[in-house]
Simulated assay, not measured.
Amino acid sequence: MKAISVSLLVAAGLLSAGVAQAADESALAKQKGCLACHAPDKKVVGPAYGWIAKKYTAADTAKLAEKVQKGGGGVWAKQLGAAIPMPANNVTPDEAKRLVTWLLSLPKLDYPK
Rank of each mutant, 00 (worst) to 15 (best):
A65Q: 05
L104G: 03
W76K: 02
M86A: 12
W76C: 13
W76P: 02
A77K: 12
Q69A: 12
I84D: 15
L103I: 15
S105Q: 14
D60C: 10
Q79D: 13
A53L: 09
A82T: 11
K70R: 14
A77R: 08
D110G: 06
T57H: 09
P87E: 07
P87V: 04
W51G: 08
K55Q: 15
A77V: 01
A59Y: 00
M86G: 04
N89D: 03
P40C: 06
A96M: 10
L80G: 03
V45R: 10
G73Q: 02
G50M: 07
G74R: 03
P40F: 06
M86K: 06
K108E: 14
W51A: 11
K108V: 09
K70M: 12
D41T: 10
A65P: 07
L80K: 01
D60K: 07
V44S: 04
D41M: 11
K78N: 01
G81A: 00
K78G: 00
T92P: 00
R98E: 07
K43T: 14
K42R: 15
A65D: 10
D60G: 10
G81W: 01
V45G: 03
K108N: 04
P93C: 06
P107C: 10
K78Y: 02
K42W: 01
V91L: 06
L103G: 06
K67Y: 13
T57W: 01
A96S: 04
S105V: 06
Y49R: 12
D60S: 10
G50N: 03
W102M: 10
A58S: 13
K54E: 13
L64M: 15
T101N: 14
E66I: 10
